[in-house]
Amino acid sequence: MAGTRSAEKPGFWIAFLVVVAVLAVVPLWFPNSFWQRLLTEVLILGLLAMSSDLLIGYVGMVSFGHALFFGTGCYGAAYALTWTESPFALWLALLLGLAGAAVMGIFVAFYSTRLRDIYFSITTLVFAQIFWVIVFTWTDVTGGENGLVFSPPRLSFLGLFAAEFTTMSMHWFVLAVVALCYVFCRRVTQSPFGKVLQAIRENEPRTRAIGYNVERHKMGMVMLSALVAGLSGALYGIFNAYAAPDYFFFLQSGETVIYNVLGGIGTLAGPVLGAGVFVLLKELFSTYWSPEYYLIPVGLLFTIMVIYMPQGLLGFLRHKLNE
């Protein structure tokens, strides 16, 4: 309604807290740590998908190179953790991951203002692949195809306490970061700044004609998207205690776009759901079928979804609930 002053619709925070609580508690009943770790992985990949949704869903720029930020974040964290075992190692790792992604973000933000549509997508793809080759071949620095292995940091907070990560404390830590990022990203997309980006997505020339500097807004969102993707990469590194060149590879970028389409573009939460469905399917198909072929049924399902459920799972559910 026009004139409403409340920021979020009633029920939003309740729904948010219920989902977070469920995600926090449910893994306690999982039969073993394998499924617990799988859920944590879904959250991290979901965060990557969410970062990509910031561009796809809210600016209309499809990045096929989000693995670049993810990989850089992961290697940034890896370097921090191979150097130091200080009580702040966890936070240093996250910080270095973010810094690495920010540097990559500057490059992509720069050409995002000059390239649009498919040209932007292709350039992000090529740019990411270049770094994949560098990481893959520059063995002295990056560990080459073996990647970097390191010991995971201890969970610490402001020097108040420090403890070894357990499967569950890792899960809760990741959940806390992802939940905070969701609230932050949602607020940004609903802010005056975010609304300008949605205007750009709707009608770029008109947005310019009413006095907005389109380039500056696009660069801002690309930077934010890069940082969130870098954070997810850093979390993934800490979670696996391992950084692999695969994280830079196109497959990672492609899957990120698939999470978005499966879950629902422009919903932020949808891509997390999409990541969950994708990872679960991949796991099931790999168990009952030869692992290499999991992409065949996933591809079929993807095609069916694009035809019959183009708004994604969350968009579809929302539509059904509104009926």
Partner: peptide, 30 residues
């Protein structure tokens, strides 16, 4: 030449907003 996928209010609101000195990214637009 409008913003077809936005509400009427949003079409006008985003244009009014263009005269604000800054566009904050942490405030909710409502």
């Amino acid at each position: 030449n409008i913003f077809p996928g936005s509400t009427c209010l949003e079409n006008i609101r985003v244009a009014v907003q263009s005269r604000q000195p800054t566009s904050s990214f942490l405030q909710h637009h409502r």
